[in-house]
């Protein structure tokens, strides 16, 4: 059965894909929909939602358009989610592959190194890293990548360990392929499915981490972000609920959508689970 049909069998995954598609479309269209800087005051402060059609989601205490903030915030969230995950997957695949394929002392060394990172609470380390490197989009991406690669490394190592002893890998040794070639052309393609699934779920975690950092005021000062909007709204929670509810909803829906898609990918790519649901 084709991959798309397998994926489409999971209803949640399709719903997730639709929501995610909408978020991506909004992010892409943000400069067209809201060409003005989302930081600028454009209307009366604290305008409730659904009253003025120019500001359907209302304005904040400085008269900034909430809808514009959400559209521009989507760009930041997706960008940080994707880039930091890519960096983390690259580090994780690199270290995990070497550790799993070569084994022995190097494996021990790399795994103790990985565990060192896993023993430090991820979010505390992210805060520390952003604080040291001063908050900017690059330092946030770096911090998220640094705290999220260890699980990937362990996953990839496990896959490589089992695949390494498979007969087709031994066959590649026998025909005289070099080590790196075996790692990348024989083993890695067979380990891709779990990596993709883990990666897709990591995007959601990265978005949450970025929002949390921004909430604490450790976001990039030049970019409007969902977490910052909620952080700014926390003192006004009882006077202007819309300031925190809409960005919060945006985070919830995006993270939920990515998780649903990840779950769907897992079902479609993992042959053991096929036919699990009737």
């Amino acid at each position: 059965m084709s991959f798309l049909r397998l994926f489409a069998r999971n209803k949640g995954a399709v719903i997730g894909l639709v929501i995610l598609g909408t978020v991506v479309a909004i992010a892409a269209a943000a400069p067209l929909l809201y060409p003005e800087d989302p930081w600028r005051s454009v209307g009366r402060p604290l305008l409730p939602p659904f009253e003025n059609l120019r500001f359907p989601l209302g304005t904040d205490m400085l008269g900034r358009d909430i809808a514009a903030g959400i559209a521009h915030g989507a760009r930041v969230s997706l960008l940080i989610g994707l880039v930091s995950t890519s960096v983390a997957v690259l580090i994780g695949v690199g270290l995990g592959a070497v550790a799993g394929f070569l084994g022995g002392r190097l494996d021990d060394l790399l795994m103790r190194f990985t565990e060192f990172f896993q023993t430090i609470p991820a979010f505390a380390m992210a805060i520390l890293l952003v604080a040291i490197f001063t908050p900017s989009i690059a330092s946030i991406i770096l911090a998220i990548a640094v705290v999220s690669w260890p699980p990937v490394a362990r996953l990839v190592r496990g896959e490589f360990l089992t695949l390494r002893s498979r007969e087709f890998v031994q066959a590649a040794v026998v025909i005289g392929q070099s080590g790196p070639r075996i790692m990348f052309s024989q083993i890695l393609p067979n380990a891709m499915s779990p990596i993709i699934v883990a990666g897709s779920l990591m995007v959601a975690t990265a978005i949450l981490t970025e929002s949390s950092l921004s909430f604490l005021g450790l976001g990039d000062r030049n970019m409007m972000s969902w977490g910052f909007m909620i952080g700014a709204a926390r003192t006004m929670l009882r006077d202007a609920w819309w300031m925190s509810v809409f960005p919060g909803l945006a985070i919830l829906l995006t993270v939920l959508a990515i998780n649903l898609v990840g779950e769907g990918l897992n079902d479609a790519m993992n042959p053991h689970l096929r036919g699990r649901r009737a």
Binding site: F168, Q170, P189
Partner: peptide, 21 residues
């Protein structure tokens, strides 16, 4: 490695010995 091509192997499991991808 340069000598490997002279010594080849046919494996046991026809399903596990070919890379499915």
């Amino acid at each position: 490695r340069p000598l490997r091509r002279h010594l080849q192997m046919v494996f046991q499991d026809p399903f596990a010995s070919l890379n499915p991808r």
